[in-house]
Design a protein around this nucleic acid. Structure first.
Lengths: 345, 345
DNA sequence: ATTGGCACTCAGGGCAGACGAGTGCCAGCG
DNA sequence: CGCTGGCACTCGTCTGCCCTGAGTGCCAAT
């Protein structure tokens, strides 16, 4: 078990290491922090911390560096959020106000966050799983093409072009629209998907339009699935290159994860938030996602029942207190703006 | 003036340097290429090439490296495209076939290209400046929100949510729709934008709906502008990290350009294509775009009059013959698929 | 439990020497 | 006149070496 002072030593090591990027020795700790004990005492504490695998020495005669486990303890038991300055809060507020629609708001959010922290910022689209389909619209482009548009009552729009096998005429489109609209309009996403699945399961009728209806229904179903699945908005990948020395290996796994999105979605989905809605995933904890040298911090935000996360992706050696405070503050503003929007309906 | 053999020496230097990433000396040239002359002769040629600033020596006693100007001469006067293998062609074809709508096709294209070349791949959306508005649709979400959807006859769809000042009811929406649809439907993008500008220029009437119409018209106009402006699809940014040693400085300007898009759009817009539709921009030629250590190669592709580019972004020291061949081949397939689509209408 | 002292380790910087790849130049040859 | 072999020279890189200093672990004393 680590003593109270031991924890303070760990705190000092984490803080100094994050700041200086250099292994920190017992001497520099007593210099920079008012422990009131000698370096030798600190050394004894450090030996204990090392036994617990909270810190490690890169080579025999050198200062200590926190291990992933050390960061974990730091975040869970020691660190307190470093509140944002009022200037920072004001910057967020002015950056986010006057946003247009949801897309615009999220883009601004992610930019604000990356600017604030210098890390890669990530915002999950609010999940619309609970939304209802308010509208389906079909636009005939002539020939065998139809643009299929689905709108939910939360204002999400998805659109896709269906390329049919044969030609259709305007009146066909109207018929198809009526059929499919009846199936999904006013229903929840899940119900809509189910209704379409039921339709596709029925045996084919000989009707000329049957094939068309099926083809279009399949597209609609895909679009509904898209609402159900989450999406990400990101910004700040260029900052990774500047922090490159923070990553022992290459940053290309990170860039891949950013490009893939799926990995990050899974990762953010699996992270467990504390009672404040904050969550961290540190270094090797991300190993199965190919991000063993990176950390992710997230904060939940809420939009009228819908629920999603904003987060940061950066080196394991990041400033957790500031970054956690930043995601929390941004999530907070985002929730508020979305709620105001909601009321404005 | 450089002799014929001088050019062949330049070719050898470029090819070897691209392959080995090391300055190439006179000796290794006679070893690897069948020049039939001695190293001393090559040295004389190299001295001339250096006088013309086509190659340079990193330090006094070391092999030569092509300058940007050298790459330029190589591309313009020496290099011949290295045709793709049939396996590669087959890979492209199978990768692109069975694409869904335009978005899907372009995403596949850009993935194919990055996989083929190992560089960052870029595809410009075909320009829809000449398209006509075929449809505007308004979906009332209740309260003061309307989703504004614009569809062109080329199948592009743009959608945005308008948040109005006051509440509107269903019948208002119908009125607004009629007004605006009359303004833009069937017209070209440019005409539509103009018509809306004219509307906004008229003095306000006292009509209750006038403000609503104006607000919505402004949104429609923005959406039309979006059709006019180009957009990019990209893939492969992670490859940059792997090639990082190819860039003397940091790769962060490149990542920024990728995230910005605007820079790349401008750059690709300014590049001048040869009679084959191919264009290159090498190293310092991109200096004003902050990409002095990068090169871009592009190939035009055509979709029934609409015209855009596919390209690659990579280090100056790239394999131009292969990359040019790759963009040309991919552009070729893309044109063909788009034309088939067109016919299928 | 804390401390000062001490021996020990080891990364990093500086220096010198050897090596070798590569050059420029020149005189000679066909 | 172009090509060639030869040769002296340059200079970056590698290697081994030493030294320094930061930092450690341990121990006996308080």
């Amino acid at each position: 078990m680590v003593s109270e002072r031991g924890l303070q030593v760990l705190r000092a090591i984490v803080e100094d290491y994050v700041e200086t990027h250099e292994p920190v020795g017992s001497r520099s700790i007593v210099d920079r922090h008012a422990f009131g004990v000698s370096a030798a005492t600190i050394r004894n504490d450090m030996a204990l911390l090392e036994e617990d695998e909270l810190i490690t020495a890169p080579h025999t005669s050198s200062g200590r560096v926190p291990t992933d486990k050390g960061y974990r303890v730091f975040v869970d038991r020691i660190a307190e959020l470093r509140p944002l300055t009022t200037a920072q809060r004001a910057a967020i507020a002015s950056f986010l106000k006057d946003s247009g629609d949801l897309d615009d708001l999220l883009v601004r959010t992610v930019r604000a966050l990356t600017r604030l922290t210098g890390q890669v910022a990530i915002v999950q689209y609010p999940s619309f799983a609970r939304a209802n389909v308010s509208h389906v619209e079909f636009v005939h482009l002539g020939g065998s093409r139809i643009v299929v548009i689905v709108v939910t009552d939360t204002g999400r729009v998805s659109q896709r072009t269906a390329l049919l096998r044969g030609e259709v005429v305007e009146s066909d489109v109207a018929t198809v629209k009526a059929t499919i609209a009846a199936l999904v309009t006013g229903r929840g996403i899940r119900d809509g998907v189910q209704a379409i699945a039921d339709l596709l399961a029925t045996p084919r009728s000989g009707d000329r339009l049957d094939d068309v209806v099926r083809a279009v229904a399949r597209i609609v179903s895909e679009e509904l699935e898209e609402f159900r699945s989450d999406r990400l908005v990101m910004a700040g990948s260029a900052t990774l290159a500047r922090r490159e020395s923070d990553f022992r290996g290459s940053i290309s796994p990170l860039l891949e994860a950013i490009e893939e999105q799926v990995t990050l979605l899974r990762l953010m989905g699996e992270m467990v938030a504390d009672e404040q809605g904050l969550a961290t995933s540190i270094g090797r904890e991300n190993e199965s996602f190919g991000l063993a040298e990176a950390s992710v911090v997230t904060s939940d935000y809420d939009a009228t029942g819908a629920h999603a996360r904003v987060g940061l992706l950066g080196p394991t050696r990041m400033d957790y207190p500031s970054n956690l405070a930043a995601v929390r503050a941004v999530a907070h503003y985002l929730s508020r703006l979305l709620d105001e929007d909601e009321k404005a309906r």
